[in-house]
Amino acid sequence: MGCFLVPVTEAVVTTVAARVIKSKETKETVNISSTDGSVEEVTKIKFSTKLGWLNKLLWGGSALLAFEHIWHGEVVPFFPFLTAVENGETAGMLAEMGSAGVMMSVLVTAVWAGMLAVSAVMEKRALRAPECEEGVKA
């Protein structure tokens, strides 16, 4: 009925958070020496970029889910935009948002958290290689 509104709300919050974090972040560089002896300076992925992954998952998924709701006539292009509200089924709609909608947000966020964990492990492995130097650039 209106379950996609929960991930949309989360997407708005995370988009604002990503913008704020991006403006305060500094560039982190790492020197990685490869097996042939050459040293390469690489930039670590910023947290705002990683938060951007969550934004894209939430916005993209919500957009396609909103289309599905239009397809089923649950969302209409005129006020109050949600058929459930028009038909006096607001309580049912809120219950669905509280169950399916919240679960959608939780699952997407959990998958993103898993991606963060995997990328952290991969970064650590790359840094464990001999002669790695970490530095922070303003």
């Binding site: 894209k56 998924g61 889910l65 679960m103 699952l107 998958v111």
Partner: peptide
Amino acid sequence: VGILCWMYWGASLMWLVDAIF
């Protein structure tokens, strides 16, 4: 193409929840 990946994976996860319910 990454945009498409994020969009389709996001929608897939959300529909998975729908399917579970």
